[in-house]
Structures are given as structure tokens and as C-alpha cells.
Lab assay of single mutants.
Amino acid sequence: MAEQVALSRTQVCGILREELFQGDAFHQSDTHIFIIMGASGDLAKKKIYPTIWWLFRDGLLPENTFIVGYARSRLTVADIRKQSEPFFKATPEEKLKLEDFFARNSYVAGQYDDAASYQRLNSHMNALHLGSQANRLFYLALPPTVYEAVTKNIHESCMSQIGWNRIIVEKPFGRDLQSSDRLSNHISSLFREDQIYRIDHYLGKEMVQNLMVLRFANRIFGPIWNRDNIACVILTFKEPFGTEGRGGYFDEFGIIRDVMQNHLLQMLCLVAMEKPASTNSDDVRDEKVKVLKCISEVQANNVVLGQYVGNPDGEGEATKGYLDDPTVPRGSTTATFAAVVLYVENERWDGVPFILRCGKALNERKAEVRLQFHDVAGDIFHQQCKRNELVIRVQPNEAVYTKMMTKKPGMFFNPEESELDLTYGNRYKNVKLPDAYERLILDVFCGSQMHFVRSDELREAWRIFTPLLHQIELEKPKPIPYIYGSRGPTEADELMKRVGFQYEGTYKWVNP
């Protein structure tokens, strides 16, 4: 592979701008107003304001973009700056750019259920340069409990009458099928589907988006991507930290609602779906819905739930269990780990287990898709061969690698495990991989909904998990304890083995 010439960040961002501006969906010269509902909250200060700053800094926003914060707290732009700027990672050389960014910011205080507050917000936006005809993007960085009041008031008082209007809704989209349907029906009564952007930030990850290209742009994968060759698929999300004093919020939802029903299920769809007619948003989402419709409700015998306990040999936070978090209700049975087996009941995947695993306070930070292939028929190497695996590593250190057998150097035919490896950090030294939120917010500006969740996708996802969630809430089974920093409950490994996964433990990928 030829040595790549190092590029400056300015040059890299210039390439990104060229890609972005050559499309006809990006209205570079139009006025846009980006409204952050819930501007005083954690999500706004840690993710949304920093993301908008990065896009502005790199010249990736339309030229005439204004940012308006809205929340109940009586704040000023200076207050917003004070709480969000520490997350910007701005350099001293960017000081003038930073001043320009905050000059485009404003803030309006108001209630979430008060019509007069929204009329005041609308008047404020109209007073901005060309504000009355601007395109408006409303980001709901809010708890779902206020979605209905907020969307109703936005629709009645704050819509642009000339430009387009788009609304970005953060997960969780309800707690179960019934609450999700209620919320979807409410929002759909106010906005068209092409105006609604239900954001799952995992769909903005580079390697998640790469799944489609790997599958449908490489001839070698087509013939082997089926039940005849693939023994099982494992989708993993692991965090090495616990709730760390923020367990009160987590306890309301648990690990299945927080990660599995959305992030992991979306990745499953991209692995299992048929080739779409095109890369058009609805063509892709149509195929994802077909996959979900082929999955039956989760069966309790295919589920393992766990909850982390303190590690007596650990240090600091590792010595504390979930129930030691003062914000967690006493005696909570909320799971911090889950392993679930699903089956896609169609011709391509009949009988292939899709194993979804996620948890907190585990032994490493990792998100990946792992396809394990069947054993080689007619073994001539005296059971020395391990199964081939194709691994798409989402985070950290984005990579695609194939675990395969090669001859060990020497005189004899002794096979050993090795890999074919594409590590993004080595291959793409001159490429700026956008943060997931950067990519998705740019998608909203461009009107691309491919990486957002459609209402029928959402409904099918909740259909699969709601009976299990209701059973857990009714019966309150005690989750299996696992030690902070471990791989999780051993019962999860036993479940995976029972459905056909072979864990060798003899080879570990190392970032080159």
C-alpha cells in the first residue's frame, strides 16, 4: 500500500466541504435556525453545542446559521458558553472563530407547556436576519415526558411559513410498544414523516454505516452471507464503567431499553437485511423493517440478565456495585447486563442465532459485530482449526478484520490463527472521521433520513421486546451478580454456547 501524504486539518475539512456542497440537498446560502429545546441540560452542553461548534469551526454548516437555545432556566448566552465550552476542545488559535460562533447564538427562556412562551420564541426567531423565511431545525434534547406539549406548541407557534421545518427526537422513544405508539401517533398528527428525525446516534458511527458497503459492494461476501456458512452472529456493546452516581436515570430504563432495543437491534438489521433497491432512505429502511418483521418476540429462556457488584480487589469506582450508587433505588432489580438470542425467521437466516450482548462495568470498552462461520467440513488438521470470524469493530479503534487459519512457519503443516486486517487509523491517516452527532446533524440539514429511525421500524423493535420488558417488570427477577471489570455473568457464556457459538479464547485482536 502506497504511503499517504499527511494533510493538514484545513485540507481534510476542505475535502469534506467539497463532498457536502456538491450535493443538491445542502442549501449552503439559505438562512437556517437550529433550535435546541432543553438548552440547559446535560445532553445540550456535552453533545449538541459542542457538535454545532465543530461543524461551524470546520465550515460545514450553511453560511447563515443561527443557534437558539430554549429552556425553562433563566440563562444568558454567557451562561450557555460557560457550561458548554469546556466540552468544545477549542484551541487558543480558534479564539476569534469561537467569538464568531457565540455571536450567532441567542437564548430564550420559557415554559414547555405555555403557548405564550412559544409565541415569544417565534418572535425572537423572526427578528433574526431573514428569520421569518429561514429553515428551522428543532432538536428535542428533553425528557420524553414533555415531548407531547413541546411538539404541539412548536407546531402551533414556531413553524417557518416559507422555509422547511424538521424536528429531531432523542431516544428513548417511549418505554414499550404502547407508549411508543402513543408518542408516534401524537407526533405524526403534527408533522409529516419526512419532517421527523428520530435519532439513534449509533447509526451515525462510521463502521455501522460501513456495514452496507461491506455487504453490498464486495462480491466475495454475497455468496457466504447466509445460514449455510454463518453459524452465529454476535452483536456486542461493552462499557468498562458503571453508573457513577447517575444511576437514578438509568434505573428508569435499564440496559435493554438503553442499548439493546435500539443500538444493537439497528446493527442487527444492517447485518441481516436484503440488498435495498438503492441507497435512498426509504429503500434502506424498507429492508430493515422486513428483517424486524421476521423476528419473533424474545423468549425468556433465551435471556440472561445481570447486575454488577463491587470488586473487592478493585480501586475507586470498581469497588462499588450498582446498588451502592446513592441515586439507585434500594434493592433495585434493574439489569445492567443483558444477553438475548433472537432468530430472523426467513430463508437466508433460518436457524442462525443472533446474540445481542450489552452491559456496564465490564472488562473493556468495545462495540462490534462478529460473524462466526461454520467449521470446515472434512477436517484434515486433527481438530487444530478454529472457526473463521469476520469482525466489524465499531469502537474504539474502528477496524474490519477476518480471523482465519494460516500455516505456522516451519517444517510442518501446523495451522495457527491469524488475521486479515483493515484498521482505519492506519489505512486512512488523512481522513477526519466525523463524530456520530456531527454526521447525523449534517444529515438533518441535508434532509437525508437514511440513518434515522422510521415509525414502522420503531414499532417493530418495541413489538419484539415489550413482552419481555413487561414480564421483567411484573416478576422482578433478581439479576445474576457479576463482578465489576469482569466479562459479565458466566451464564451468558453458557447461553451463547448452547445456541452454537464457540468461544476459543486463544486469539485476541490487537490494534496495530
Score class of each variant (00 low, 15 high):
Gly38Phe: 02
Arg198Val: 06
Gly23Ala: 15
Asp79Thr: 05
Leu211Gly: 03
Leu16Lys: 05
Glu99Ala: 05
Glu244Phe: 04
Pro50Arg: 05
His129Met: 14
Ile255Gln: 10
Cys158Phe: 03
Asp79Met: 05
Gly14Thr: 07
Val213His: 05
Met125Lys: 00
Thr31Met: 09
Met159Glu: 09
Lys47Tyr: 14
Thr10Cys: 08
Ala116Cys: 05
Phe101Ser: 00
Lys82Phe: 06
Gln119Phe: 10
Ala115Glu: 08
Arg136His: 08
Ser73Trp: 04
Pro144Ser: 13
Glu239Phe: 06
Ile234Phe: 11
Phe34Thr: 06
Gly222Phe: 07
Thr31Trp: 10
Phe56Cys: 02
Met159Tyr: 10
Val77Thr: 07
Tyr139Val: 05
Asn122Met: 08
Leu214Thr: 15
Met159Gly: 13
Lys97Gly: 03
Arg166Ser: 03
Tyr70Ile: 04
Gly14Gln: 11
Asp251His: 11
Cys13Ile: 07
Pro172His: 08
Ala2Tyr: 11
Arg57Tyr: 02
Asn229His: 13
Ser189Ala: 06
Leu121Gly: 00
Gln4Pro: 11
Ala25Cys: 13
Glu170Asp: 09
Gly131Ile: 02
Phe253Gln: 14
Ala109Tyr: 10
His124Val: 04
Gln119Gly: 03
Gln22Tyr: 08
Asn185Gln: 07
Ala103Ile: 08
Thr236Glu: 14
Leu96Tyr: 14
Phe66Glu: 07
Glu63Gln: 07
Ser117Phe: 07
Gly247Ala: 12
Gly248His: 12
Glu193Ala: 03
Ala116Leu: 12
Met37Val: 12
Glu94Cys: 06
Ala141Tyr: 02
Leu128Glu: 03
Asn64Met: 08
Ala109Ser: 10
Glu19Pro: 07
Ser106Pro: 00
Asp114Lys: 10
Leu96Asp: 09
Ile256Ser: 01
Leu20Gln: 09
Leu183His: 10
Glu193His: 02
Arg81Pro: 00
Ser157Met: 11
Lys47Trp: 13
Asn165Ile: 03
Arg17Ala: 11
Asp114Leu: 05
Pro144Lys: 11
Glu206Phe: 07
Ile256Tyr: 01
Asn64Trp: 03
Ala127Phe: 09
Cys232Asp: 02
Lys238Met: 15
Pro143Cys: 04
His129Ile: 10
Ala25Gly: 13
Lys205Asp: 15
Ser117Cys: 13
Ile67Arg: 00
Val146Pro: 10
Ala116Met: 11
Asn105Lys: 00
Pro143His: 14
Asn153Ser: 08
Ile256Asn: 01
Arg192Gln: 05
Arg257Ile: 10
Trp225Glu: 00
Ile220Leu: 09
His129Val: 12
Ser8Met: 05
Leu43Gly: 03
Ile52Glu: 00
Ile162Lys: 14
Ala141Leu: 04
Val146Gln: 11
Gly69His: 07
Gly222Tyr: 11
Arg192Cys: 09
Tyr107Met: 06
Ile36Phe: 02
Tyr118Trp: 09
Thr10Asn: 08
Glu93Leu: 05
Glu170Gln: 13
Ala231Trp: 01
Asn64Val: 02
Phe34Tyr: 08
Thr236Tyr: 03
Ser188Ile: 06
Leu121Thr: 00
Glu244His: 14
Val12Asn: 05
Asn126Asp: 10
Asp113Phe: 05
Asp114Ala: 05
Leu140Cys: 06
His27Asp: 07
Gly131Thr: 12
Ser160Ile: 02
Phe221Arg: 01
Leu55Ser: 08
Thr31Gln: 04
Phe241Glu: 13
Pro50Lys: 06
Gly163Trp: 01
Thr51Leu: 03
Asp200Asn: 15
Leu20Asp: 04
Ala78His: 03
Tyr139Ala: 05
Ser184Ile: 09
Thr91Ala: 11
Tyr49Ile: 05
Gly174Leu: 09
Leu75Ser: 07
Ser157Val: 10
Cys13Met: 04
Ile187Pro: 03
Thr10Gln: 12
His201Ser: 10
Phe241Met: 15
Gln111Cys: 03
Leu177Pro: 12
Ala44Pro: 02
Asp100Ser: 13
Glu3Lys: 11
Trp164Ile: 07
Arg175Ile: 10
Ile48Ser: 00
Gln178Leu: 09
His155Ser: 11
Ala115His: 14
Cys158Ala: 05
Ile67Thr: 02
Gly23Asp: 15
Leu55His: 04
Ser29Pro: 10
Glu148Tyr: 07
Thr145Leu: 15
Gly242Leu: 04
Ile255Glu: 13
Glu239Arg: 03
Thr31Gly: 06
Met159Leu: 11
Arg120Thr: 07
Phe88Met: 08
Lys82Arg: 11
Met207Tyr: 15
Asp114Phe: 03
Tyr107His: 03
Ser184His: 03
Glu193Tyr: 02
Val12Pro: 07
Arg81Ser: 04
Lys171Thr: 11
Ala39Leu: 01
Arg57Gly: 02
Ala78Tyr: 08
Phe66Tyr: 15
Lys95Thr: 06
Leu7Tyr: 08
Lys89Met: 05
Asp176Trp: 04
Phe21Lys: 12
Asp100Tyr: 09
Ala115Trp: 06
Tyr112Asp: 04
Ser117Met: 10
Phe26Leu: 03
Phe88Glu: 01
Val77Met: 06
Glu148Lys: 15
Gln209Leu: 08
Ser84Cys: 14
Asp24His: 09
Phe102Leu: 06
Tyr107Gly: 02
Phe26Ala: 05
Tyr70Glu: 00
Gln119Asn: 10
Gln119Val: 09
Ser106Glu: 04
Tyr139Pro: 01
Leu60Cys: 04
Val77Trp: 04
Gln119Leu: 06
Phe241Val: 15
Trp225Gln: 00
Arg219Tyr: 03
Pro62Leu: 03
Asn210Gly: 10
Ser157Gln: 11
Thr243Asn: 12
Thr10Tyr: 07
Phe34Gly: 01
Leu98Asp: 00
Ala116Asp: 10
Glu239Cys: 10
Leu98Pro: 00
Ile168Pro: 02
Lys205Met: 04
Arg257Leu: 06
Gly23Asn: 15
Tyr70Pro: 00
Thr151Tyr: 09
Asn229Trp: 02
Arg81Cys: 05
Gln4Cys: 08
Glu85Cys: 06
Arg57Val: 03
Glu252Ile: 04
Thr151Lys: 02
Phe253Asp: 14
Cys13Asn: 05
Glu85Arg: 03
Ile199Phe: 10
Phe253Leu: 10
Cys158His: 00
Tyr112Met: 03
Asp113Arg: 04
Ile52Cys: 06
Pro143Gly: 12
Leu203Glu: 14
Cys158Tyr: 00
Ile256Val: 13
Ser157Lys: 07
Ser40Met: 07
Arg9Lys: 06
Ser29Leu: 12
Glu85Gln: 10
Ala149Thr: 05
Ala231His: 10
Asn105Trp: 07
Cys232Asn: 14
Ile154Leu: 13
Val208Arg: 00
Ala90Gln: 03
Tyr118Ala: 05
Pro62Lys: 06
Lys95Met: 14
Arg219Gly: 14
Arg215Phe: 01
Tyr202Pro: 15
Gln11Thr: 08
Asn105Ser: 07
Phe88Lys: 01
Ala149His: 09
Lys95His: 08
Pro143Gln: 11
His27Thr: 15
Glu244Trp: 08
Ser157Asp: 08
Arg215His: 03
Gly38Leu: 00
Ser8Pro: 03
Gln161Cys: 04
Lys89Ile: 07
Thr31Pro: 12
Ala78Met: 12
Met207Phe: 14
Gly245Leu: 08
Gly110Ile: 00
Gly247Lys: 13
Val169Met: 08
Glu19Thr: 05
Asn226Leu: 01
Asp58Tyr: 09
Ile80Asp: 00
Thr145Gln: 12
Ala71Cys: 03
Lys171Gly: 08
Phe241Arg: 13
Asp228Met: 08
Arg227Tyr: 04
Gly38Gln: 00
Gly14Tyr: 05
Val169Ser: 06
Asp58Ile: 07
Arg136Ser: 02
Arg136Glu: 00
Phe173Glu: 03
Ala109Cys: 10
Asp30Glu: 12
Pro62Ser: 05
Arg166Trp: 00
Ser106Asn: 04
Val169His: 12
Glu170His: 12
Ser73Glu: 02
Ala90Asn: 09
Lys46Cys: 09
Phe34Pro: 01
Met159Val: 05
Ser188Val: 12
Lys89Pro: 04
Ser160Ala: 08
Arg182Asn: 12
Glu93Trp: 07
Ser123Val: 09
